[in-house]
Design a protein around this nucleic acid. Sequence first.
DNA 1: AAGAGGATGAACT
DNA 2: GTTCATCCTCTTG
Length: 209
Amino acid sequence: MKLVSKTFYLDNDVVNIAKTLLGKVLISSIGAHPISCRIVETEAYRGPDDRACHAYNYRQTERTKVIYEEGGVAYIYISYGMHFMLNVVTSTKGNAHAILIRAVEPLEGIESMVVNRKIQADNYLLTGGPGKVCQALGITKEINGLAFYKKDSPLQIYDDGHFIENKNIITTSRVGMSIHTAEASNWPWRFYIKGNKYVSRPLKVFYPW
DNA sequence: AAGAGGATGAACT
DNA sequence: GTTCATCCTCTTG
C-alpha cells in the first residue's frame, strides 16, 4: 500500500485520471478512529470549457479558487446548502480540473461510518452518493485545499495494487446536470466499477463494454 | 440587499 | 415515479 504521489495528480487528462482513481483507497483520519474505503464512482469536471464545472469559462470566485491550484488537493463545496462534496483537484496550477468522488466502498472503520451516517447498511445507502461519502468520512470544509499526497494529511489516497480493468468500468453521463449545462450534460464523464453495490444511482449507460 | 438555484438525500406515492 | 428540506453561493440591482 503506497501513498499516491503528487505527480499522479498533475496530468492534464482529468477524464483519464477519473477512471484511474477507481479502485484507489481513500483514508480519513479526521475523526477519532481511522476510516478507509475504496473509490468506486467518480465524475470529471474540466474548466474552462465544461459548462457543468464551477470553473467554467475561467470563473473566479471565493468558492472556486482552490480548483485552480496545483493538482493533488481537495476541493470541498456545499451542495443544496447542506451536503458537502469531495473533489480531487488535478492538472497544473491555473488549469481548473477536478474529480467528484461520488461513491466509495467501506474497507475499515465501518462502525465509525455507521455512526457518522446514523444508518446501518452495507450497500449504497451507507456511502453511495457524494453527500453520503462526506458524511461517512467526516469531511467538512475544513479539509478544503488540503493535499492528498502528504504524509500527515487527514485525507489521503493510496494505491494497494487493486487494479480495475477497462472492461469493468462503466461509463455514463454525469448526474445532476441542469438545462444550463447545455451540451456538457451528455458528456460521458462519469465512471463506476461494474456491479459494485455501493454505486450511487443507475443512469443510462453510454459505453457498456 | 435580495432572490434564485443548486455536481443531494430522504421520504414519500 | 415525486416532493421537499435547507442554506450557501452567486448574480443582479
